[in-house]
Design a protein around this nucleic acid. Structure first.
Length: 416
RNA sequence: CGGGGCGUAGUAUAGCGGUAGUACGUUUGGUUUGGGACCAAAUAGCCCGAGUUCGAUUCUCGGCGCCCCGACCA
């Protein structure tokens, strides 16, 4: 993609009232546009990152047997009355149409998925089942904050699993624990993301959160670095040592990038979601639910992986694979021509390229490249127009290197 | 929801009881061209409402909005 065609522009300064690093960098780079407190639009660059994250999540959820669907955002009031959450969930958006009919805007989808599954689960032969979606959620946060880390409208992957018995849920829960860690590993923040014991529900004493260490996080957790596990501060009085090695815990700030819950029959009961076992007896379906906030994950990556110049995207979630910066001046067709040949080769090899073809001074282009944060920058200029190497700099490097095309390729993730 | 702060051009800011200046951006012309250039010109603004006042962007009150701390948070 030609940068001169990209409708967004970078800016030197962030809005004064955005303190959060994720919001500052994402706005300056043209990834997001703020609409109101806690509500952001994703611009082309931001959407590319979001889609990369979604791709990773889909891949992992599919591996775990998840079947993707897309549920509605409008929810029937009666479904929420059935679970009691129409009144008990204080951050539920309730909207009325002109006739006064009320509906909820979905903050989570147990009230929708369970009635759906009720139509398709009737026998033990129909279990287990696992379904997920990636969809916008609405929660009336009293205080949106920290840029895109806590919003009122946000994109979430929510997966719901349905089981014949507790053992099957337990097994699946362990699989999801592993799958979640895979997601964070692939998104580049796995090494500082902790499986964290947190408070549970009436059904299960504990749940698990995935918490990424960062000072901008709003949660206080207590970590055991050896075992890579942690305990949320909210249950520290009950669990004051490492759940694994029983060693001491160290307090840290963290942001919750995912959580997994054993729901039991909490939502199957109100909708009478049961199945017939082999003896022909109706038995309640046991459920689990598993969530990841995509925008929050994106923001967390920015919080953790950025420097004073801008964002440093991990390769798997970068909006583009390569940033080709042409320093061609007016009339230097040999330079721009070489840049375009390179891009054609890279794209032919399956890579996504952002091509800075703009008529700007080099300093400005470099500053933008650093801000946007694509992992690999390739400069084509009169310096290398007539030799067979390119000037290549990884975003994490300080100095550029002169590399051949093949050497450049070796720095990129493999493509099939 | 409690507490605090802040609303001036697209962005960042200065300022004043007498209707606003600077920088970046954008547009035009020229000089430039390897880490956010320079000259000249142009463009564009006081959140909304009420009150006080001869006069309010400035003071007072109310509203709305944004940020921060706390509470809340599948």
């Amino acid at each position: 993609m030609r940068q001169s065609d990209l409708f967004t522009k970078t800016r030197k300064e962030a809005p004064a009232d955005e303190i959060a690093k994720n919001a500052q960098l994402l706005i300056r780079g043209g990834f997001v546009h703020k609409e109101m407190a806690g509500v952001y639009s994703f611009l082309p660059l931001g959407l590319r990152v979001l889609n990369k994250i979604a791709h990773i999540i889909r891949d992992e959820m599919n591996k775990a047997g998840g079947q993707e669907l897309l549920m509605s955002s409008f929810h029937p009031k009666e479904n929420w009355l059935a679970t009691g959450r129409w009144d008990s969930m204080t951050d539920l958006y309730k909207v009325a149409d002109s006739s006064g009919r009320e509906v909820a805007l979905g903050p989570t989808h147990e009230e929708i998925i369970v009635p759906i599954m009720r139509e398709y689960i009737s026998s033990y032969k129909d279990l287990p089942r696992s379904a997920y979606q990636i969809q916008n959620k609405f929660r009336m946060e009293l205080r949106a904050k920290a840029g895109i880390l806590r919003g009122r409208e946000f994109i979430m992957k929510d997966l719901y699993s349905f089981h014949a018995n507790q053992e099957d849920l337990d097994t699946y829960y362990d699989i999801m624990t592993k799958v979640y860690q895979n997601v964070y590993d692939r998104a580049g923040i796995g090494d500082e993301t902790y499986l964290t014991l947190a408070s549970g529900s009436s059904f299960s004493k504990y749940s698990h959160e995935f918490q990424t260490l960062t000072d901008s996080g709003e949660d206080n957790i207590h970590v055991c670095e050896k075992c890579k596990v942690a305990v949320n501060g909210e249950i520290l009085s009950e669990q004051s040592t490492c759940p694994n090695c029983k060693g001491p815990l160290e307090p840290k700030k963290a942001v919750e990038v995912g959580n997994i819950f054993k729901l039991g029959t909490k939502y199957s009961d109100p909708f009478a979601l049961t199945y017939k076992n082999e003896a022909g007896v109706n038995v309640p379906v046991i459920m689990g639910c598993y969530g990841i906030g995509l925008g929050r994950l994106l923001g967390t990556i920015v919080e953790k992986l950025s420097d004073e110049k801008g964002i440093v995207w991990p390769a798997a979630v970068s909006p583009f694979d390569v940033h080709v910066v042409s320093l061609a001046k007016e009339g230097e067709e040999n330079v721009s021509g070489r840049a375009e040949e390179l891009i054609a080769k890279l794209e032919g090899a399956g890579y996504e390229v952002l091509y800075d073809d703009r008529d700007l001074r080099p300093g400005e282009k470099f500053a933008d490249a650093d801000l946007i944060g694509i992992p690999l920058r390739v400069v084509v200029s009169t310096k290398n127009a007539n030799i067979d190497t390119f000037e290549v700099k990884r975003r994490t490097d300080d100095e550029a290197k002169s590399l051949s095309y093949d050497e450049l390729l070796s720095l990129l993730p493999k493509r099939a």
